[in-house]
Design a protein around this nucleic acid. Structure first.
Lengths: 148, 148
DNA sequence: TTTGATGCAAAGACTTTGCATGCTT
DNA sequence: AAGCATGCAAAGTCTTTGCATCAAA
């Protein structure tokens, strides 16, 4: 999902975001990993490329980007908030240690395909709400030899 | 889901938890609401019943109870962590303002029934992990007159 | 009795904010 | 040139921890 600088500028313009050096770094850094990093992890990664970037800017930028839907906060059960530049519907696998992985795309699709749109509409109607998205999160832990 | 004191003592014993007054209060308080409160909200509720209970104890107790599976942390996108004493598989609806509601039980069941066990097993096999649970979270916001 | 839980306050982790400066438009 | 973003540090929010005391087993 490596976004070119041109593509990033385009995305930012589409969402009325000023295109600053730091924001490009943050978005490119997030788009270039599958690790769903925390703000601080991302900050440490970016620090090599621009030693002046500040953690506050990383937080501010991630906020700005999630406000317009260019990145998403991924709900990990605990600890620091994690971020993902892949905003397509896909299944997250939360490991006990806090790491979050993507499910393989084909399996994500097959799992999500089972969710009934009819039921979602009924939820909307009965509760008088609008559904904007569904998160499916698989809670898992690495398998030991004993597990079956 | 109102748990009697006897039932609570039984549950605690089953999980090798000391049955203290405070823990009973916390569990009963959580089991008696559908509001998925934060630790602080729960603390404020319980404070009326026992003005001596401390926020730290509420946190410690909620940790102890989730460690043995008697309560669950519910992933709300942001802000303070929320808790639920209903540990059955059910769908959570996260509203934009941070509140979390349960989906009506019949709709929860119908939605979850669509999730393919075969796909879950394939996730386990392919990634070499053990799946312990699935969270399905519906992101929604209250409907305004304009929405359609 | 022994062991673990409580309450308090302090420390810690994570995130946001105020403000002067600098960069994007 | 105007206005928003940045960097820094301070403040804020949420959670955990150390320790003396107390209660459950």
């Amino acid at each position: 999902m490596n976004a070119t600088p041109e593509r990033i500028r385009e995305l930012f313009h589409q969402h009325d975001l000023r295109c600053t050096h730091q924001r490009e770094l943050v978005f490119a850094g997030l788009a270039g990993t599958k690790a769903h990093p925390t703000a601080e992890e991302l900050y440490l990664n970016l620090h090599g490329q621009d030693p002046n970037i500040s953690l506050a800017t990383v937080y501010n930028t991630l906020d700005a980007l999630s406000a317009v839907g260019l990145v998403r906060k991924v709900p990990g059960a605990s600890g620091a908030c994690r971020y993902d530049a892949d905003t397509s519907q896909h299944v997250h696998i939360s490991m006990g240690d806090g790491r979050v992985m993507d499910a393989p795309q084909d399996l994500s699709e097959r799992l999500l395909a089972g969710l009934s749109l009819a039921v979602l509409h009924e939820i909307e109607d009965r509760l008088g709400i609008s559904v904007s998205r569904i998160n499916v999160q698989v809670i898992a832990h690495s398998r030991t030899l004993k597990d079956g």
